[in-house]
Simulated scan of single mutants.
Amino acid sequence: MPTACRALGLGRTLGYELARRGEFPCPVLRVGRRYVVPTAGVHALLGLGSATRPHGSAAVDGGVEPTQGA
């Protein structure tokens, strides 16, 4: 939640208040007492397109992507 708030330019208190009211600008999941904001929703809201890279593409930092089951 705090990372999503920073990315959206919201203060932490306002972000949590919006989440409690169901008015956060992207989907929020309630996991126990925690609020979890999936990165895909934040990326979509910011117009960053798909949150994942196409299969087989190189990692941005030049690292090796993990294989399935790793």
Rank of each mutant, 00 (worst) to 15 (best):
L48S: 00
G69R: 07
A44V: 01
F24N: 05
P38K: 04
L46Y: 02
A44G: 07
S50T: 13
Y35L: 10
G32Y: 01
H43E: 07
G32V: 05
E23K: 12
A59I: 03
S57E: 13
G47M: 03
A19S: 09
A44Y: 01
A70Y: 09
G63S: 15
Y35A: 13
H55G: 08
H43R: 14
V31K: 12
A44R: 12
G32N: 07
P66W: 08
S50Q: 14
V42L: 03
E17W: 06
R12E: 14
E65G: 14
R33M: 05
T3W: 08
V60E: 13
Q68F: 15
E65R: 15
C5E: 08
A51C: 08
F24E: 01
L29F: 14
G41S: 00
A4T: 05
V31E: 14
G63R: 13
G63Y: 06
L29K: 13
A7Q: 12
P25G: 06
Y35K: 06
H55M: 08
P38V: 01
R6T: 11
V31P: 04
G15S: 05
T3R: 15
L46N: 03
A59K: 07
Y16E: 06
T52P: 01
E17C: 05
A7M: 14
V60D: 09
G11C: 06
V42H: 00
V28R: 04
V42D: 01
T39F: 09
A51D: 06
L8H: 02
T13M: 09
T67F: 10
L18F: 05
L10C: 00
P38S: 04
P2T: 15
V28E: 03
V42N: 01
C26A: 07
A70V: 10
T3H: 13
G32I: 09
V64K: 09
V36L: 14
G69S: 03
L10R: 01
G11D: 07
G56H: 02
G63M: 11
R34W: 10
H43F: 12
V60C: 08
P27E: 09
G49L: 06
A40D: 10
V64P: 00
G56Y: 01
G11W: 04
G41D: 00
V31W: 09
L48M: 08
L14Y: 11
A44N: 05
C5Y: 04
E65D: 12
G9E: 06
Q68D: 14
P38L: 02
R21S: 05
G41W: 01
R20Y: 11
V60N: 09
H55E: 15
C5R: 08
V37A: 10
Y16Q: 10
E23Y: 00
R53F: 09
A59W: 03
G32A: 07
L48T: 00
C26N: 00
G47T: 02
L14A: 12
G9R: 06
H43S: 10
C5H: 10
P54L: 08
A7D: 10
G47Q: 04
M1T: 11
P66E: 07
R34V: 11
A19H: 05
L8V: 02
L45P: 03
A7E: 12
G62F: 09
L45R: 15
L45T: 03
E65T: 15
V31F: 12
T67E: 14
